[in-house]
């Protein structure tokens, strides 16, 4: 729905060729260890997991901790045997969900 997540990858790749997937998601990553101006700790509010799948099959996932910087950036290499829609899904505290998609053709 909302424009919160970004995924970048080449639009077409060769079968088995290693390419880079780069992702960004808008999120404050509030650690839960930080006092607010009233001196009390601001409750934790983080993205806990991002997962990347191709047409429903999960290919990569990362569990995140409060140590991941605000507006999390994650990049990793990938190879594909067939093309499809690469979907990135982020989930986190307080029911946070975001999604981004990119179509990749395999030659």
């Amino acid at each position: 729905m909302s424009a919160r997540g970004l995924v970048s990858a080449p639009a077409r790749v060769k079968r088995g060729e290693v390419f880079e997937v780069k992702t960004l998601v808008a999120h404050p990553m509030e650690t839960g260890f930080r006092p607010g101006f009233d001196g009390r700790l601001i409750p934790r509010d983080i993205v806990t997991r991002m997962a990347v799948s191709l047409d429903g099959a999960e290919l990569f996932a990362m569990e995140m901790s409060p140590a991941i910087a605000a507006n999390p950036y994650v990049a990793f290499p990938m190879t594909l045997e067939k093309g499809g829609v690469l979907t990135v899904e982020w989930r986190g505290d307080n029911g946070f969900v975001a999604e981004a998609r990119i179509a990749i053709a395999v030659a």
Binding site: L59, A69, V74, F76, T79
Partner: peptide, 15 residues
């Protein structure tokens, strides 16, 4: 970070 299949030259970049 977990790769669904054994990945050669695996790498993860973040901040």
């Amino acid at each position: 970070a977990r790769f669904a299949a054994p990945t050669p030259a695996a790498r993860v970049a973040t901040r």
